[in-house]
């Protein structure tokens, strides 16, 4: 019988190694699967490369990993957050390296990693600072840059509901990078608000199939009050 639900956050992130590339879902610090990132602290893993759209906020999730000196590098599109980030000082001191990637190039590099592709050419960033040093090719008269796939050793993602197969449903704006990150990692872990019985989801309704998900852990729902969110 398949049952991907695990009882604890520690079990959910077990096996994370030093130097691992960890894909962290969410659009910003506001919808990060923060409990999973924080659970990584218990594994002792360090020198992590974090792939996220942002760099976390001031305290929770990725910010807690940065404060505990576990992060070597962040790959992201937007290294800022309203209210500030723990990343800012770690970047200034040189402790954490930064690779800024256009937002759609991150998601497409993840998709390439997930799909077994060797990379792709895109017009985005060609002729700009972020395109410097990249292999360039003229296609239909326009310059394109080559982008490599991104694969994770582990993905930490968020979802609304899961069943025991690891099928996931996400809610509204919170889908964002979560499905493609689950698809692009060797071990994918989902933090969900609730478990539902197998068969509860309509077959046409599932946002991320259990084949992409290895472990599921229930974490108390995020606070409903918008202003109280991190």
């Amino acid at each position: 019988m398949i049952d991907k639900q695990v009882a604890s956050l520690e079990e959910a992130v077990a096996g994370a190694k030093d130097g691992a590339t960890v894909l962290v879902g969410g659009f910003s610090a506001g919808d990060e699967p923060a409990a999973l990132s924080e659970a990584l602290l218990s594994t002792g893993a360090r020198d992590l490369t974090i792939v996220n759209n942002g760099v976390g906020g001031l305290a929770r999730g990725i910010a807690a990993l940065i404060a505990a000196h576990r992060v070597r590098k962040i790959v992201c599109s937007y290294p800022r957050f309203v209210g500030g980030t723990a990343f800012a000082s770690a970047y200034k001191s040189g402790e954490v390296a930064l690779e800024v990637v256009p937002q759609g190039t991150i998601s497409e590099r993840l998709r390439a990693g997930a799909a077994g592709l060797g990379g792709f050419y895109t017009k985005v960033s060609a002729g700009t600072l972020l395109g410097e040093g990249k292999e360039t090719r003229i296609i239909d008269g326009e310059p394109y840059v080559f982008e490599h796939p991104i694969k994770g050793d582990m993905a930490l993602i968020g979802a609304q509901q899961a069943d025991r197969w690891g099928n996931l449903v996400m809610r509204h704006s919170r889908r964002n990078f979560n499905p493609v990150m689950a698809m692009a990692a060797a071990v994918s872990v989902a933090q969900v608000r609730e478990m539902v019985p197998l068969g509860h989801f309509h077959p046409d309704q599932i946002h991320c199939q259990g084949i992409f998900v290895d472990r599921v852990v229930v974490v108390d729902p995020e606070p409903k009050n918008w202003s109280a969110r991190p």
């Binding site: 800024v100 937002q103 759609g104 017009k123």
Partner: peptide
């Protein structure tokens, strides 16, 4: 140089 450059989706939109 003191601020990390933040591209977000700007390049994607400008090209796409």
């Amino acid at each position: 140089p003191a601020t990390a450059p933040s591209v977000g989706g700007a390049m994607d939109l400008a090209v796409g």
